[in-house]
Amino acid sequence: MRAELIIDVSGLRKHFGRTAALDGLDLQVRPGEVHGFLGPNGAGKSTTLRILLGLIRASGGRATVLGRDPWADAVVVHRDLAYVPGDVGLWPNLSGGQIIDLLTRLRGGADPQLRRQLVEDFELDTTKLARQYSRGNRQKVVLVAAFSRPARLYLLDEPTSGLDPVMEAVFARHVERVRAEGSAVLLSSHILSEVERLCDRVTIIRAGRTVQTGTLAELRELTRTTFRVAAGGDGAAPVAAAVLGSLVGVTSLRTADGTLEFDVDPDRLPEVLAELARLRPSTVLAGPPSLEQLFLRHYGDGTEGEVR
């Protein structure tokens, strides 16, 4: 099982002087999966990616990429890998086309058909000099370079942060294409809808440590269900609020215009549902928390996030 992991990181630590950027990070990426890598600013996402690329060395813990040590075997690992950095610095006096060809040739050469397709899909003017590109266009240059040659692993650091929604869709299409071809993608992102749509599994980190990992379904099983309930009739809302508020497992209760909203702990769900039925509500909406809600809980304060 472990041997076939594309990325296998456990207990990873990295210190810069006295500050600990990573403090026991775990991350597993399996073949053929798109893995979301989430965390607030400064949580250590880019540091992790740089360690996985062998650009910086871990202070402790274990990391393998494609079954190898990314620091010792950097060059070998990089043959099967494509990278899009979060902060794209390009050669100002080279054109976009020249940069795409440089980066792909270093990896063994672009697939010409793929390159043409990507340039067309991303609507990139490859004759512009890099210094004239906007941030989004700089990102497109690197994305075209990354996707124009097949790789076993794509490391993408907030690749769509400068792209418009149409280009985001193009990006999503190409991520899905490489997944279908069996490649693995590690996608660090802040755009939750994108992660929800693309990612098979997600790892959430905070302050250099993994706080949650699993499929979105798994993450949701561990978390509360959100209810939106319309109380049946005038004056019913305050009564319902009083009843629900007294139940164990109901949190974040709020009332607005006769509608009640609250979260329910997974293990108290049957009891709360029974009580709710007795209140004879007119409508009930129940849904898993959005990724955003999951996210905000881990971003908000540390104590609530320790689910595992």
Partner: peptide, 12 residues
Amino acid sequence: GRAELLLAAPVA
């Protein structure tokens, strides 16, 4: 940041 791009390719 250009070295990062270059060294993420198979360049020692």
